[in-house]
Amino acid sequence: MIAAIAVGLLLAGCGSSNSNDKPAPRTTVATTPAKPTLSKVEVAKQCAAAIAKRPADDAGEIPSEPTPEPCKPLSDSEYLDAYMDGIHQANEAAQDEFQQKIDGAAEDATP
């Protein structure tokens, strides 16, 4: 019997409405889309490309420091691999450019 009264009071309290009650304002949350997560392979490729674009110093070496921004998520060993790949890319580009100059000079020298 007490349980029935408690349930009745509970239901009566839920059903009553106070004229001063206003609905709660709706809140919207703006979200920015997350950047797509790149795989380690893709990050390493971007890192190597950044290294390959670095100019060589006076001794002809490509400096490893400071670490380029695309390389920062990599571990030390992954960075070293990407650094070596970047140097390889830079060397190939320089050899291609040198070969083009040789070919151009040979064409100019041909009577």
Rank of each mutant, 00 (worst) to 15 (best):
M1A: 08
A4Y: 05
I5T: 10
I5S: 07
A6T: 11
V7R: 12
G8P: 03
G8M: 08
G8Y: 07
L10G: 08
A12D: 09
G13D: 06
G13V: 03
C14S: 15
S16Y: 15
S19F: 11
S19R: 13
N20E: 14
D21M: 15
D21T: 14
P23I: 05
P23Q: 08
P23L: 06
P25H: 10
T28Q: 07
T28E: 12
T31I: 08
T31A: 09
T32L: 06
T32M: 07
T32Y: 04
P33S: 13
P33F: 07
K35C: 04
K35T: 05
P36W: 03
T37P: 07
L38A: 06
S39T: 10
K40I: 10
K40A: 11
E42A: 11
K45W: 11
K45C: 09
K45N: 11
Q46M: 05
Q46I: 00
C47A: 03
C47E: 00
A48G: 05
A49I: 05
A49G: 07
A49F: 04
I51M: 03
I51S: 01
A52N: 01
K53T: 13
K53C: 08
K53D: 15
A56M: 02
D57A: 07
D57N: 11
A59E: 08
G60E: 05
E61H: 12
E61P: 09
I62F: 07
S64R: 13
E65M: 11
P66G: 02
P66K: 00
T67F: 01
E69L: 00
P70Q: 00
P70D: 00
P70Y: 00
P70L: 00
C71M: 02
C71G: 01
C71D: 01
K72N: 00
K72T: 00
P73T: 03
L74G: 01
S75A: 04
E78K: 01
E78Y: 02
Y79T: 08
Y79I: 09
Y83F: 13
D85C: 03
G86K: 01
G86H: 01
G86R: 00
A90P: 00
N91E: 11
E92W: 14
E92A: 15
A94M: 05
Q95N: 12
D96R: 15
D96T: 14
E97L: 13
F98Q: 04
Q100S: 12
G104K: 08
G104T: 09
E107L: 14
A109K: 07
P111C: 14
P111G: 14
